[in-house]
Design a protein around this nucleic acid. Structure first.
Length: 492
RNA sequence: GGCCCCGUCGCCAAGUGGUAAGGCAGAGGUCUGCAAAACCUCCAUCACCCGUUCAAAUCGGGUCGGGGCCUCCA
């Protein structure tokens, strides 16, 4: 089995072969730090977090670089509005981003470089480009000359004539060709600047990624990723700059994730219909959001809505409840003395989906990181586990306990790649309960008191009263669960 | 206008030539004083049309519908 990845450059799935076997160089475009990140950022970063984890699971040594853009027009403008230092502003939102990503269960990349800490590297590349005749200086600005780079538009597959016809030169720009783009921007009064051979200024929009990718990963890397919207012009320009400067292929595989829609419409800053990760996490458990993101293939659009998030919560709960039941049985049965016999052929058939889980999971992930299908396999395994758990056949044949323990391991191992199911089931379920409690307007104490009252009513066989209590709580979203050990509750 | 993507059960979502995974919701059953959970059973022929093929949701052509990029954006 080999990993196949959809490469935007070729427009098809290709077998993944890193430049150096066993090592993967991965670069993903990070955020511009001028605002809290939204669920589109959440999706992109969760998707690449899973890719990072899976590549490691496959035995690769992965260097994952994700940059921060900490100097840029948007940052400068926002800082001006807020009357604070642009550097401070960037720092604040970089910290917020890291917090959000941690809550979403994303691992830290190997390196998280900042544009402002790579100015010498940026200047060096620009200088090379000028020397090679691929860039020119004009009034303190430096522009990349696209007509001298033959491969331009090979990633986005656009038509140059059409593009040129539609392009405009903004006031104050000194471009020779409307499609040329800035590598270096001269500083206006009051703007942050760095000294350069062309005078004080700051890097253009795309050059930082070329510089940081080359600095940390070398001139050719394996995977370069980002959102679909970065294909043009950002990634196209990165290719032009990088390959123009080094003469080497910049990246072998280009991976782009799809958008998050709100009510079937693209979520975007300009439309103003975006939710920040923070807002969403006030209402939903971070793992629910993560599960929701992974329930679709990374290239498909996903539609964000309360209904979809609630469905995701129910699905995730199903897994955690199975995991908890599994844990309980495994603990209580650990010391019991029961016979152990081989499973029959029929038993093996029943057990199949669980036995094959890791193999199926891998096949799904190998197929362009198909997390939706991988989750399907996980649920198949969960059903088998529940089945074995409910008919209690493990009480007569110890062999089943071993199988259950193995299934638990398998589910957790797969979950680890997805960054799911890693919380202790009991505490996750408890957390969910606490969150649901907020909506009911009830306190734990009030619920416990009603449970006590109902217990007494039941003991007196006053079932009408007992049922009235059940109904009353149910109306507020609290569900009572009777068991031989007593009554517990959970939220709907 | 150019380039690109999508249309699969009530909702979400896999499947991209060999006869439709999974989740949520729903119906019936087992369990329960009643419930819940869980389990069992049931629940789609893949927008439409025309082709290619022994065989198509999957390939080609067309129609209708939806969306994206081309300007900052994950």
């Amino acid at each position: 089995m080999t990993l196949r990845i959809y490469n935007t450059m070729s427009g098809s799935k290709e077998e993944f072969q890193p430049i150096e076997p066993g090592k993967v160089r991965l670069y993903v475009c990070g955020i511009t730090a001028y605002d809290y990140c939204h669920i589109g950022h959440a999706r992109a970063n969760v998707v690449f977090d899973v890719i990072f984890r899976y590549l490691k699971r496959l035995g690769n040594e992965v260097t994952y670089v994700r940059n921060f853009t900490d100097v840029d027009d948007k940052i400068i403008n926002r800082a001006k509005e807020l009357k604070i230092d642009s550097c401070e502003l960037a720092k604040r939102f970089m910290a917020a981003f890291s917090e959000d990503m941690a809550r979403l269960g994303c691992e830290s990349p190997s390196v998280e470089p900042k544009a402002t800490e790579n100015i010498p590297q940026i200047v060096a590349i620009i200088r090379t480009l000028i020397d090679k005749g691929l860039a020119y200086e004009a009034d303190g600005d430096v522009y990349f000359s696209i007509e001298h780079f033959p491969g331009y538009l090979k990633l986005s597959k656009r038509n140059m004539d059409e593009m040129v016809a539609g392009a405009r030169i903004a006031p104050g720009e000194q471009k020779r060709n409307p499609m040329d783009f800035a590598l270096w921007k001269a500083a206006k009064p009051g703007e942050p600047y760095w000294d350069s051979p062309w005078g004080p200024g700051r890097p253009g929009w795309h050059i930082e990624c070329s510089a940081m990718s080359m600095r940390y990963l070398g001139s050719s890397i394996d995977i370069h990723g980002g959102g679909k919207d970065l294909v043009f012009p950002h990634h196209e320009n990165e290719i032009a700059q990088s390959e123009g400067a080094t003469g080497q292929p910049f990246a072998r595989y280009w991976i782009h994730n799809g958008f998050v829609n709100i009510n079937q419409e693209k979520m975007s800053k300009s439309l103003g219909n975006f939710f920040t990760v923070r807002e969403v996490l006030e209402k939903y458990d971070p793992e629910v959001l993560r599960f929701f993101i992974l329930s679709a293939h990374y290239r498909s659009p996903i539609d964000f809505s309360d209904k979809n998030l609630e469905d995701a919560r129910h699905g995730l709960t199903r897994v955690y409840e199975a995991l908890q039941a599994l844990e309980e049985v495994l603990e209580t049965q650990a010391g019991s003395v029961i016979p152990e016999t081989e499973l029959t052929g029929e038993d093996e058939m029943i057990w199949q989906p669980a036995a094959r889980l890791e193999e199926d999971f891998r096949a799904a992930m190998d197929d362009d990181f198909n997390t939706a299908q991988a989750l399907g396999h996980l649920f198949e395994a969960v059903r088998v586990v529940n089945r074995v758990l409910s008919d209690r056949r493990f009480e007569t044949n110890r062999h089943w306990l071993k199988r259950l323990a193995a299934a638990r391991e398998g589910i957790l191992r797969c979950g680890q790649v997805l960054g799911l199911f890693q919380t202790k089931p009991g505490s996750w379920l408890e957390r969910l309960k606490d969150a649901g409690l907020g909506e009911s307007g009830l306190s734990k104490e009030a619920i416990e008191a009603l449970i006590e009252e109902r217990k007494a009513a039941r003991a007196a066989r006053n079932f009408p009263r007992a049922d009235a209590i059940r109904d009353e709580l149910a109306a507020k979203g609290i569900i009572l669960l009777d068991s031989p050990q007593g009554t517990t509750w959970k939220t709907k």
